[in-house]
């Protein structure tokens, strides 16, 4: 039953908002609150944090009716962590390779890592695509648009 509660989309969203709102409200007490006339930096975030927490709670309470809980269609669909991880990793590779290894290497890394997130990928196609996009990036971004990007390894 407990797993079901968390696995329910609306309840999970409610809990998420509740936790985030509470944390924000708690965090904003570190800043000066002030009063309604002279609001300090903590006033508005505290108010919004409390509002968010209240909305989260409301969302949870409204969905804890038995008929809604047993509604299978409201369960969270299984997330595809493989794609999420690979895409995230490819972007981080690009970002952190750019300054040292340069645009060409960074683009190759981005395209190859993100490319294998598609399950039925094939290496030959991916090789061509990454080469093509790297050429395109250098010609268009670095030279054409003149963006300040390092092209070759430093």
């Amino acid at each position: 039953m407990k797993l079901r509660l968390i696995g329910h989309r609306d309840i999970a969203a409610g809990l998420f908002f509740f936790v985030l709102g509470s944390l924000t409200a708690w965090g904003s007490t570190a800043y000066k609150l002030g009063n309604a006339m002279r609001m300090g930096p903590g006033y508005f975030p505290l108010a919004l944090g409390l509002l968010l927490a209240a909305l989260g709670l409301l969302l949870v309470l409204r969905n804890t009716r038995p008929d809604l809980l047993s509604d299978e269609s409201r369960l969270i669909e299984k997330p595809c962590l493989r794609s999420l991880g690979l895409i995230g990793f490819s972007l981080l590779t690009f970002a952190f390779a750019l300054q040292t290894a340069g645009l060409i290497v960074a683009t190759l890394g981005l395209v190859i890592f993100s490319g294998i997130a598609y399950r039925a990928f094939n290496w030959k196609e991916l090789g061509l695509l990454s080469g093509g996009l790297a050429t395109f990036a250098v010609l268009v971004f670095a030279y054409g648009l003149g963006l300040p990007l390092q092209v070759f390894p430093a």
């Binding site: 490819s90 990036a137 971004f141």
Partner: peptide, 15 residues
């Protein structure tokens, strides 16, 4: 298409 889109996004954010 999507690796190309990611490249555009990345360059956009970075620059």
């Amino acid at each position: 298409l999507y690796p190309a889109i990611l490249l555009f996004c990345c360059v956009g954010i970075y620059s």
